[in-house]
Simulated scan of single mutants.
Amino acid sequence: MDWLRQADWLTRERVRGYALLLALAGLGLLVNSYLKAMGPAGTDFLAFWGAGHVTAAGDPKAAYDLAVQQGVQTGTGSEGWFAFVNPPPFLFVLAPFGSLPFPLAWIAWVAITWGLWAWVSIRAFPRLWPLVVAYPGALIAAGHAQTGLLTGALLVLAAHELGKRPALSGAAIGVLVIKPHLAVLAPFWLATGGKWRAFLAAGIAAIGLLALSWLAFGGETLAAYSTSWRASEALMEGINPDFLLRMTTFYAQARLWAGDGVAVALAVISGFAALAVAMLAWRRFGYDARATGAAVLAATALASPYLFNYDLPFLIFPTLWLVAQGLEHGFRPYEKLGLVLLYLAPYATRALAFPLGINLMPLAALALLALVWTRGGVRKAGTSPST
């Protein structure tokens, strides 16, 4: 069984070849996603385009008006429509896309956000660029034209730059005010590592964006945003298998199978475990910023009860960090095979969720975190937390 234990057959050349084939297949799937998005079924991107469209027209508070959004979005020919629930600073990003025709805006959004995510990820792992280009976790975000590529780029940037440019790293975290539950571990990660420049930059960026959105869009838009919470609450009420199977949290899967009580208990356990990782990572990895970033980003997939497969492009960082560790220090038994499965997991678990009746991504995220954490003994101590 050495072919599984060591997987020596998985050479650099073969990995590059497989990555190329996977990228080509992904491109074909993306074209199919675009054609479906232009049909009557609609697409998640309608919510972002609709919000950007009314903002570009000078009425940003209408981004949160469900009746207006229904009219704007179904005006594209879609029979379905989606509530916009992101905070007002996100409207700065969406307004330029809302000024474009919907079919062109979809292409522009996917191309720009994927390009940004790929550029940041390749900067972090230049030798592993074929694995970035072919990453299935990015494909599902692109196919939905969702926010995961943009937020993933910010998280990867934060993890990659923290040791060299802490202010830039912190600013990237602050911009995550557009989807704040993805940054819930960041304050604890930065504070326990003594990364105060990054901590301050994150706060300035977040508060600054909120203030700018208030100045640009007015207090009425901020007030209207609070009404969008009811739409999110309505989605979470009851047991909707179609909705819960799209989620990647222990909370969602437990609600589907065991009810609210067990779901809440697992959410609390998962959240506190992720928090413990963020607070102990510096000690575990000898103040190696990239190593702690790999651990914290892996833990981020377990921190929130509200997360979807299309939110997971940021997992490219812990996944490729493990690959880089294996190339430098040697792969552990079965680690190559495990990394192949985890590399495919964000897309594969979503594709299998409905046939299986359960989304297995929470278990994959836990396995990824375990692999990162157990690599801690390999790293040498770095700088002190005060640097």
Results as ranks from 00 to 15, higher is better:
130 P>Y: 12
363 L>A: 10
362 P>F: 07
209 L>H: 00
39 G>M: 10
175 V>F: 03
151 T>V: 11
40 P>H: 14
73 Q>P: 08
48 F>V: 02
38 M>L: 15
1 M>V: 04
284 R>M: 15
262 V>C: 14
152 G>A: 10
52 G>L: 06
76 T>S: 15
182 L>G: 11
319 T>F: 10
222 L>A: 14
374 T>H: 13
219 G>L: 07
96 P>Y: 05
338 G>N: 09
176 L>G: 00
44 D>C: 09
228 S>E: 12
180 P>D: 15
270 S>V: 01
339 L>H: 02
141 A>Q: 02
177 V>C: 03
315 L>T: 10
371 L>S: 07
28 G>F: 07
48 F>L: 09
47 A>T: 05
109 W>G: 03
225 Y>R: 09
149 L>E: 12
156 V>R: 01
143 G>Y: 01
70 Q>F: 04
165 R>Q: 14
317 F>G: 02
59 D>T: 00
51 A>L: 11
8 D>L: 09
133 V>E: 04
65 D>S: 09
73 Q>F: 08
186 A>S: 12
329 H>G: 10
14 R>L: 08
189 W>T: 06
357 G>F: 08
168 L>G: 06
193 G>S: 14
113 T>G: 05
108 A>H: 11
165 R>M: 12
32 N>F: 00
259 G>R: 04
340 V>A: 11
256 L>A: 06
67 A>F: 02
105 A>E: 12
301 A>C: 09
82 F>S: 04
249 T>C: 11
375 R>K: 10
72 V>C: 03
4 L>F: 06
32 N>K: 01
216 A>N: 06
234 A>D: 15
100 L>S: 06
204 I>S: 03
186 A>Y: 07
67 A>Q: 13
